[in-house]
Write a protein that binds this DNA or RNA. Structure first.
Lengths: 341, 341
DNA sequence: TTGTACGCGTTATCAA
DNA sequence: TTGATAACGCGTACAA
């Protein structure tokens, strides 16, 4: 059998209460002498309190859940480390759960987290619909939640996001500044909030420049390389684009592939802007102009917010934090060749 | 307050024992009628048993720990999904922990897992030294462990690996078959077992072909892009290599960068073989010849072994499983130009 | 300053 | 077929 608080108590000739006090650093009501004796014995036996038993009474597990679509999407590892590092430093462990963006699995994950009695959940919410069962679940269990990266209309829950509308705006503006007019864009899945916001920014930039929005130039992607490839093919075949704004780098990779196959040269024939500034996009030739979001930071911030919410369980007012994106100009964008050149 | 087994019992006019039986599908000793009644009420109240309380008595948490160096290394997400998917399907949750390959953090992670009472641990063991505190920890707590990807000399613990020696052999053999003689190699960190094994394979192939091993052609890397870059620069500057075998794709990426900077053309001036077959190495130009290992499968298999060990807690004999690597020939390797050409 | 005793929600043992 | 009750290991109100 594992060694328990009782064993320590017996060996130190004190009650378990006393040991418990020492364990929890209760300063008052304990003799310096006994404290030391207990501490020594704890050390000697390498005793660790049983967190399960402790949780039974404290109702806390020092554990949080992290629900994401798919860790294999290269955007997420950085985010996950942000969450993990902050959580660990604060004494929390994290359950990781992949849902592949399926509502069914999101609900399962949520239930699971509840059963595991996590103290809170960081959730990258793939479905920006208010009908998501998420709402009733969270509400019924009163479990602290912070949304991350992908949110929900309104500010009903705390959340940490990149300012996606702004990002979409500056990316598109950059292309406009390079004299591009026929600017295609490849969105993420339709139900993902950050994609919607990036699209807003895209349209805003066009409107502001007096360029009419042509819906044939807006193609749905899936945030995967393959979707970017297909979308780019469609855009390039229908012609009439001199630039493409892909809503993430992965899809921009697909654009590169499609362009290569079709004999379209980047950036001479086609300018490309991506999103995320993935570490390994430096492999691309030419180097990709892209939007950088502070991914690691986002994970950290979300976790910070969550722990805050957990500790001051009184209704801390929900906060929504938008972090600033920035445009990184490299070699995949270039001034459009005009008839005059 | 959350709803408990008591509430169900009261509402169904039965004892908690009966409810517990229904919950655990005890077939014998329960009336079909009462079972149904209880089940209905459980459904009606959407009751879920408290896993913590359950764990208190069963000594099982249905949780496993997964300890890896860094999820941001693109090799690991695939591995992690393999573990996660298998574990989840079997009703287990997984704690993820990054150690950055530091022994100190590995030990911390191990302790943490122990405190969280995980039923078992999947561990990618960065330090193939028998002095690792890991040993005493695991032994003292009698906690099932399966090593993954990176092991330990000997077969003291169950483990799932790629047959790295074979992989190193076929990669090198491929270069030799292309008439290369001056073949450099960039290893992983020195204390990592899989790097040692790959090196064995490399040497074996050279020996078999009667090519003397030149230790100036063996450079230590770190399994990171940057280390591959530095090592490649060293190899190319000292000259005398017409081919490089990088012990992972990430470092092969670094080789590409170094080559580009130094005006060395792949594959005309330099053949390159990588290792891992990362999904996004398809972005490289020319496409990378590499070793594929069944990463996802490895994660699955390791978890399968672990759960087996957990369930049949009687000393299941330790198993070591080697999965087969395969060589994927693309465009980064080419027959060496000889003086006769 | 220290200790006794109860409760957390569940399973398991034994009796009815 | 069912139920009363003792564990599991810890924190804590209350008593000493």
């Amino acid at each position: 059998m594992a060694i328990t608080i009782k064993d320590i108590a017996k060996k130190a000739n004190v009650s378990i209460t006393t040991v418990s006090r020492v364990l929890n650093n209760k300063t008052e009501g304990i003799g310096e002498e006994t404290r030391k004796r207990v501490l020594d014995i704890i050390e000697e036996l390498d005793y660790r309190p049983n967190t399960i038993a402790r949780s039974m009474v404290t109702k806390q597990t020092n554990t949080i859940g992290l629900i994401i679509p798919d860790i294999r999407n290269p955007f997420f590892p950085e985010l996950v480390r942000g969450v993990e590092d902050f959580a660990n430093d604060a004494g929390y462990s994290v359950f990781l759960c992949n849902t592949d963006g399926s509502i069914k699995r999101e609900v399962e994950a949520l239930r699971l987290m509840k059963e595991k009695n996590v103290d809170g959940i960081v959730f990258t919410y793939s479905h920006a619909t208010t009908k998501h069962p998420f709402q009733s679940l969270v509400h019924r269990h009163r479990i602290p939640v912070v949304l991350l990266d992908r949110g929900l209309d309104g500010e009903k829950y705390s959340g940490v996001y990149t300012d996606n509308e702004k990002a979409g705006y500056i990316a598109t503006k950059h292309l406009i500044d390079l004299s591009h007019v026929q600017i295609g864009c490849i969105t993420g899945p339709e139900h993902v909030q950050n994609s919607k916001d990036r699209l807003k920014g895209y349209m805003k930039a066009l409107n502001q420049a007096g360029i009419p929005v042509d819906h044939r130039r807006i193609v749905s992607g899936d945030y995967q390389l393959e979707g970017g490839y297909r979308a780019a093919k469609a855009l390039l075949e229908k012609g009439h684009v001199t630039a493409i704004f892909a809503f993430n780098d992965l899809m921009a990779f697909g654009v590169y592939q499609a362009a290569a196959e079709m004999g379209v040269t980047i950036p001479d024939d086609l300018s490309v802007v991506g999103f995320d500034n993935l570490k390994y996009n430096r492999l691309l030739q030419p180097k990709l102009t892209t939007i950088e979001q502070p991914t690691y930071e986002m994970g950290k911030t979300a976790t910070e917010l969550l722990l805050q919410q957990i500790r001051e369980s009184k209704r801390v007012k929900t906060q929504t934090i938008y972090l600033d994106p920035s445009l990184i100009i490299r070699n995949s964008t270039k001034k459009r060749r005009t008839e005059d050149d």
